Amino acid sequence: MVSEKVTSNDVARLAGVSQSAVSRFFTPGTSVSKRTAEKIKAAADELGYRPNVLARSLITGKSRIIGLVVAYLENYFYPDVVERLSRLLQDKGYHVLVFISSLAADKVEEITQEILDYQVDGIVLASANMSSELAARCHASGVPIVLFNRLQDDEKLSAVTSDNRGGGRMLALHLVETGRRRIAYIAGFEGASTQRDRERGFREGLDEAGQALFARDVGNFRYEEAQAAARRLFAAPEAERPDAVFVCNDHMAFAVMDVLRFELNLTIPGDVAVVGFDDVPPARWPSYNLTTIRQSVDDMVAETVATLLSAIEGDVSPARRVCLPGALVVRGSSQPAKPI
């Protein structure tokens, strides 16, 4: 025999309070007196009552759900971001619905349309690209969007990023200062603003130091593709191959380092200096000891949540573009190969 579902009216009767008090107790952003809250909680626990979140959203017009779109979780950077964003949003009374998309804008359109069907209160788009057409549709529907670690040309979209261009420049100057002269670059996904900005800053830093990029290949932010790029770049004789390489993110840099050491029998940093971008946990492991740019993830997450919730709460100010500085972290992978 199936027992009848416990309702808020049952809780109200047992607690000796009104049904509206029970509703306020279970609605984020509202409150009741401490004594009333204690009675409602005790009654709810005794009856095993759980509020119907979906039904409540129909009444309030707010789902308290945030859609979070990520292109991939293979890179250590994004599971960390998902966890920190989820924790902070939960602290603010929101639930997070995670969707896995791809780097390509057409797939993001499919996913984002699905998210809109869930009546989310807002969207955080991380590691993926959104077309201007889809952005316009979301904007017209009144659903706020914040881009995380990405930029778009659409001025109506708020975005929170690191200073990718400045980070690329710092890495170029660092490699030159360590005496490297044949400096290569392995790019990420060509359509990503992070890739474009990091490469732009890197080339500017080399130019500032009187050098030109020695060689270039593409890893598309994928481990296997970064491995293949390393094999192509370093297949030449010693005098014709790079003596340093900036890999667009740490995830790909680990792949490059594995190929250099275990397939090509090259030493790091003796034969080749390697630098990355992000400062994910394995970068600090002795097996990699990777020089990289540290992104201020906590600050990025805090700015993203503040921007999104402000828009959800009705702020009609122009879109925010927040660019946070990164820090150069020098480790063993880029030490000078010999005195200079």
Results as ranks from 00 to 15, higher is better:
Y223N: 07
T161Y: 07
V316L: 00
E204A: 13
V70L: 08
R231Q: 09
V322D: 05
L264G: 07
F221S: 08
T60P: 11
K338V: 08
E110R: 10
P144A: 15
L157E: 02
A306K: 13
P282S: 08
A255P: 03
I111P: 01
I115N: 03
A55L: 15
R232K: 10
I123C: 05
I268R: 01
P237K: 15
E199P: 07
Y76V: 04
A302T: 15
A319P: 01
V17N: 05
A42Y: 13
C248S: 06
D10Y: 12
G191H: 10
L88E: 08
R294Q: 03
A184M: 10
P28I: 06
S18H: 09
I123L: 13
I59H: 13
V96D: 04
D207I: 09
G314H: 01
G29A: 03
E177Y: 00
V108L: 15
R232F: 12
S296K: 05
R169K: 09
A244K: 00
A15N: 08
T291N: 04
A126W: 02
R331H: 01
F77R: 02
E133P: 10
A235D: 11
M252S: 14
V305S: 04
E4A: 05
N289E: 15
S20H: 12
R180K: 03
A21I: 06
K338W: 15
L134V: 08
R182K: 12
G210T: 06
V2W: 09
K34I: 15
R200K: 11
C248K: 04
R169Q: 00
E114D: 15
N52K: 09
F202D: 00
R169L: 00
S334K: 00
L328K: 00
I115S: 09
E225F: 05
L151N: 12
L213P: 03
P242W: 09
N9M: 14
L116K: 12
V11S: 14
S101E: 07
V124H: 02
A229N: 08
S334R: 00
A12Y: 10
Q113L: 14
C248L: 10
A12F: 05
L151E: 10
I340L: 12
F254I: 09
E46C: 07
E225R: 13
E133S: 13
A209T: 03
N149F: 06
S102Q: 06
R222T: 14
E114P: 05
F246R: 00
H95A: 11
L58H: 13
R232W: 09
I115T: 05
L125H: 11
A105C: 13
V32W: 12
E240R: 10
F254N: 10
F26C: 06
Q90E: 15
P237W: 07
V11Y: 04
R200F: 10
V247K: 01
R232I: 12
V280H: 01
K156A: 11
G210A: 14
A283Q: 03
R294V: 01
L97P: 02
A311D: 00
G332E: 12
A215Y: 14
